[in-house]
């Protein structure tokens, strides 16, 4: 059986003065295909190793982490593709609670700040509000976000100003509601982003696009919001 080497960020505030990297060696069996399979196995050897996980199929957004320097989801990362020692760290830029578990409060605060819900105060029709397939298509590439935070925690602008810059995930969501023909709050949404930081700290560095495990493109959505801002200014 093949062995693989790991180097994993460890920190338990209950006992460690400061974080350290711990080395592991683990045998890879035929069922150990994804990185999450192996981390789960590691946890059977050392139950103090702490991380989040749930769906194991790339849809819940729990197991985002920094894998060999790049943010991703452990459950859909093939171990065969990873160079050794496989280095695992918590998502950068957020406070670490323990090991690979980060405090996502700031990330969700930004998501909540863009009013992530359809606003439509006109009287509710008895049936569905109609939307053409073309209009619905505008939401593709936007609504599929799983709030994993891979993008925002790879964005330098978010690292420096997590309290002021909405970040790629939040801005993608903002555009998801702007783009929805059923939403009536576009101008309030733009007002809400009209600020030197909230939107305009994005310098199109594209790290976010590079890491998104769902293949979404926050930079493009941000560009569209910027266009709308410019257009309404003239």
């Amino acid at each position: 059986m093949k062995k693989m080497r790991f180097s994993i960020y460890r920190y338990d505030p209950d006992k460690d003065a400061k974080p350290y990297m711990q080395d592991y060696e683990v045998e890879i069996g035929p069922n150990d295909v994804k990185l999450l399979d192996v981390i789960v196995k590691l946890k059977t050897m050392d139950d103090t190793l702490s991380f989040r996980r749930s769906c194991r199929e790339g849809i819940c957004g729990s197991d985002a982490m920094n894998i060999n320097g790049k943010n991703g989801l452990a459950c859909i990362t093939d171990i065969a593709d990873l160079a050794e020692p496989i280095t695992l760290r918590p998502l950068p830029g957020l406070p670490v609670i323990r090991d690979l578990i980060v405090d996502m409060t700031q990330f969700f605060k930004q998501y909540h700040s863009i009013k992530p819900y359809v606003v439509n105060d006109s009287p509710r029709p008895e049936r569905e509000r109609l939307q053409s397939p073309e209009d619905r298509k505008e939401l593709d590439g936007l609504y599929e976000c799983i709030l994993c935070a891979c993008c925002s925690t790879s964005c330098p602008s978010f690292w420096w100003n997590p309290d002021k810059f909405v970040g790629p995930a939040g801005l993608l969501a903002a555009y998801r509601f702007i783009a929805d023909t059923r939403d009536e709050a576009t101008s309030e949404r733009l007002d809400n982003l009209e600020d030197p930081y909230r939107l305009f700290r994005c310098h199109s560095i594209m790290n976010c696009v590079d890491v998104c495990p769902k293949g979404l493109n926050p930079t493009k959505a941000i560009g569209k919001i910027k266009d709308l801002m410019v257009r309404r200014a003239v």
Partner: peptide
């Protein structure tokens, strides 16, 4: 289901705009 649509759920659509 209509209520979910009104809440903003992004259902796929038929040509006539219905769910």
């Amino acid at each position: 289901v209509i209520e979910l649509e009104h809440f903003g759920m992004p259902f796929d659509r038929l040509e006539n705009g219905k769910i």
